[in-house]
């Protein structure tokens, strides 16, 4: 049997905010099942060091800067708002959340 079933796919799709058709659910169950079976092999790796931290993995540290010297207000607003699917004045229009 596959490592994942149609209900699992449905749940993941909900979490990821994706609508998925019934037909595709079936296909995904199958091919995600074989991908998961493949990546499952890492469970056999025993020599792995525990608690890898990001600096050890990437070789770089997180870089912070002061939250200062802002650009001139409104400089980019029009360009960015022009790309929004729906706007009202200088606002991006969104449906109510509650």
């Amino acid at each position: 049997m596959y490592m994942i079933n149609a209900q699992d796919i449905e749940k993941l799709a909900g979490l990821a905010r994706l609508s998925i058709s019934e037909e595709e659910k079936e296909e995904l169950t199958k091919n995600m099942g074989s991908i998961l079976a493949y990546i499952d092999a890492i469970k056999k790796a025993t020599e792995a060091n525990k608690k890898a931290n990001t600096e050890e993995i990437y070789g770089v540290r997180n870089v912070m800067r002061e939250d200062s010297e802002p650009h001139q207000s409104g400089m980019y607003s029009e360009k960015i708002l022009n790309e929004a699917p729906r706007r009202e004045g200088d606002y991006v229009k969104v449906k109510k959340i509650l």
């Binding site: 990546i39 890492i42 469970k43 790796a45 020599e47 792995a48 060091n49 525990k50 608690k51 890898a52 050890e56 993995i57």
Partner: peptide
């Protein structure tokens, strides 16, 4: 833990 964290652990070993 079983996938993402473990993968990062192995990634570190591979780098070493």
């Amino acid at each position: 833990d079983a996938y993402y964290n473990k993968a990062n652990d192995i990634r570190k070993t591979i780098k070493k």
